[in-house]
Design a protein around this nucleic acid. Structure first.
Lengths: 199, 199
DNA sequence: ATTTCAATTGTACTCCGGTACAATAAAACC
DNA sequence: GGTTTTATTGTACCGGAGTACAATTGAAAT
């Protein structure tokens, strides 16, 4: 995954770069477009980002994350409308910073917690306290060992990788998988993964 | 920070415990209240949690995070209304899991990305003006034909089924798939589906 | 005119996944 | 005690998926 950092505050860029050990990181002199997550220091170069987005350029690949020292709800709304995928605090902890990068890389939207909270507050009227909780799901029917294997499968592991991790043979992996498919009512891995989130 | 894990699924509790290296972790036999983050396997002990929350006990200290193998928006709404502070996927990656714990510990609300997205959608047109946010980013890079094929793949169709539907040969299906995998940066079907679902 | 991209297809091959035969042993349940 | 479930494993086989070689054609952009 490629991450581009953009801003005038060198110490902040260095901070982010330190968080991104193991990632393909570049510090950019200007906004450009590519298949990458672009983290922008909104305090120093917010104008450039807004001009760039207003011009409607570069909608093909880059996912923008705008970070600000004191994030505001109004700014969040504005940036979301402009197409930014992530917005939050420049100085947030590493774990949140990485979660933000991964979330945006996966195509989702990442927002600072206070904004999420405000969204929940705004739609509170439609959050019902008597909502029906869904019926049992096939995962509840799995044996402990089957569940363990299922989690590795959802990590994208192959049968032989799972066998290594769990200290069993590939043959046993297949046996468990056969049981899982039967309980889930599917015919193979792809169907199972599709079912995993009710897709 | 104290984290309590509660559920009947031992492999899942072990998974979470592995993520929480460096934290003060306890695996609980029942729900109790203290100044701590309580992570609950909603699939196995959801009833207990709901009963506990309905009784209105323990509002002083514990912050509850409910995780489920297939999180749903309705359930998110229900649990939020009941006072749960975090809700998401039992099998999410470590970076998101830790971010969730930290966010809830800080007094904020953590929600799985699809729900955040739905909240953004509900607040309305003052935020959303950009329909391309709908799709995972790589989808925007696909040609029309590739997109069409992608949709059938997400329906769980095999290569030969897709070939029949689209009136092309299996060879062409494979060629398009190869292109899609390259644009998505994955090595095969399962990885693609996992990526499509943001897991 | 040239280049690039999209769409299509063939041959060939390897590997992985899934299933069908079978089996044993232990634990839990009736 | 008998039955069921869970966990484990072997042999064998087939088919699907994915990739590496290659190619042609048409449309759009330069």
């Amino acid at each position: 995954m490629k991450v581009v950092l953009f801003g005038d505050d060198i110490s902040l860029l260095n901070r982010w770069e330190r968080f991104l050990v193991g990632y393909d990181v570049k510090i950019a002199g200007s906004i450009s477009d590519g298949d990458e997550v672009v983290v922008v220091d909104f305090d120093s170069v917010g104008k450039s980002l807004l001009e760039y987005l207003k011009r409607g350029e570069g909608r093909a690949g880059a996912r923008f994350v705008a970070l600000q020292s004191a994030p505001k709800i109004k700014t969040a709304e504005y940036l979301l409308a402009a197409g930014v995928r992530g917005y939050g605090n420049s100085y947030m902890q590493r774990v949140h910073f990485l979660s933000c990068i991964e979330t945006v890389e996966e195509g989702n939207i990442w927002l600072f917690p206070e904004f999420v909270y405000s969204l929940v507050g705004r739609v509170g009227g439609s959050i019902r306290s008597d909502s029906h909780v869904d019926a049992p799901y096939f995962v509840e029917l799995l044996s402990p060992r089957e569940k363990e294997l299922y989690s590795f499968l959802l990590d994208g592991k192959s049968n032989s990788e799972i066998a290594d991790i769990m200290g069993i043979t590939v043959r046993t992996v297949k046996a468990h998988l056969g049981n899982i498919y039967e309980k889930a009512g599917v015919n193979g891995r792809v169907e199972l993964v599709l079912k995993a989130k009710g897709m």
